[in-house]
């Protein structure tokens, strides 16, 4: 699978991500698409580590590192200050992990969406608190091992994409690093749609946290889409749904077989997971016209 991306060099090599890191890949596609007329807000996360210790930075745009729960509010503050100075062109982007988005940062995110703040919010979703050593977040899926759910998580993943759609924001999209052309297109689309909060949830498989080889990030990402666990779709104005990539016949068993976080599952567990995925996919499918 080949792809070509016209990119402006904003995210640079020499950063501190693990070899093969999906987040570093996502940052390259996102930041290089956003270009240099942008300001980023990053909370404590692997993203903060990747952006670099003072005085170094892997990102050649201003980056403000905020507190874990405040990304959306911090980004909104920058945007409003720019507006007050008559600057309507600089893109302000918050890039947070799933802990900083689904859990502790959700209140600020929901409020920024309600106020229709003119910012782009990207969640790099690796389904857990990976920077602190793989603990459960509300983005962790059913039955997955984490160090705070050693017997497997007992509840399903929170559906933040649909919750964001329910805010009637101008643009919500799911994306993942295994489909870079799709991710880049969605970032461009988010940039074109001005005047409201644009949310992109990017599934970024964590190699160490999920227990896959260094080379398996993109492949794992594609398996998540192809098995129906993580369909790629976009929604405009809270109502116009478009499916980009859905399941293509692979099963949940194919997906979990490659990841150590699922190695404790019995065949019955896998069946239960398959039923959950089928249910969610049927529900989502009804929304595509």
């Amino acid at each position: 699978m080949g792809y070509e991306i016209q990119e402006e060099k904003v995210f640079n090599s020499g950063h501190a991500a693990c070899p093969g890191c999906s987040e570093a890949l996502a940052l390259r596609f996102i930041l290089n698409t956003l270009g240099k007329d942008a300001i980023a807000v990053v909370p404590p996360s692997c993203i903060a580590i990747i952006s670099g210790p003072q005085p170094l930075s892997s990102m050649s745009i201003p980056v403000y590192q905020t507190t874990l729960e405040a990304s959306a509010a911090s980004a909104a503050g920058i945007k409003r200050a720019l507006i007050s100075k008559g600057n309507n062109h600089t893109n302000v982007v918050a890039i947070a992990g799933d802990g900083g988005t689904y859990d502790i940062g959700f209140q600020a995110l929901s409020a920024a969406a309600e106020r229709n703040e003119d910012i782009i919010y990207v969640c790099l979703d690796n389904e857990g608190y990976m920077n602190t050593g793989t603990q459960k977040s509300s983005a962790t899926p059913s039955m997955a091992f984490t160090t705070s759910t050693p017997a497997g998580k007992l509840s399903p993943k929170k559906n933040v994409p649909e919750i964001m759609v329910a805010h009637n924001i101008p643009y919500m999209a799911t994306a993942t690093t295994g489909y870079p052309d799709d991710l880049v297109r969605k970032v461009k689309k988010a940039m074109e749609i001005k005047g409201g909060l644009r949310f992109i949830n990017v599934l970024t498989p964590c190699l160490a946290g999920w227990g896959v080889p260094d080379s398996a990030g993109p492949k794992t990402s594609r398996l998540a889409v192809q098995s129906g666990i993580y369909p790629l779709y976009e929604v405009e104005n809270g109502e116009t749904y478009t499916l980009n990539y859905g399941p293509n016949g692979l099963s949940v068993a194919d997906y979990v077989a490659t990841q150590k976080r699922y190695r404790h599952l019995s065949p019955e567990d896998v069946e239960l997971l398959q039923a959950e995925v089928n249910h969610d996919w049927e529900k989502l499918q009804k929304k595509f016209k």
Partner: peptide, 22 residues
């Protein structure tokens, strides 16, 4: 710009970045 925030925590978070934007 008046920002009607959802909490004092977010109010101060936005105040900081707005101030740092100059």
């Amino acid at each position: 710009e008046i920002m009607t925030m959802e909490s004092e925590h977010s109010a101060m978070a936005a105040a900081i970045t707005a101030s740092l934007t100059g």
